[in-house]
Amino acid sequence: MTLRARSGRPVEEITVERVVAGELTAEDLRVHPDTLRAQAEVAAAHGNPQLAANLRRAAEMTALSDERLLAIYEALRPGRSTRAELLAIVAELEESGAATTAAMVREAIAGGAERGLLADP
């Protein structure tokens, strides 16, 4: 299997010459979700299902822009978001196929509500 960047460019094409020629973009420096899923399988085979789950969430999260990633992280911090705001994030994630990440945000809503860590509406 040829390893590719998220842009589809084979890893071998990431060369200094191309960088200098201005042929590469930020997308060429992003890991491909398939690569992360493959690494998840390796982690699971080596007895760490939690690391595997983390890498699967990561594979989903490759679809998010840097800005969105930072924004969702911020929204998950204590007292930042109401239940409704977090549910909107869940919907957004589910729409983009990020099912396991969405499930984790659902847990954050349940756990946060129980311990008073959500913002008041």
Binding site: N54, R57, E60, M61, L76, R77, P78
Partner: peptide
Amino acid sequence: WSKAFLCSAYAS
């Protein structure tokens, strides 16, 4: 959960 998200964010 925010920390778990951060872990995955780095890996992503």
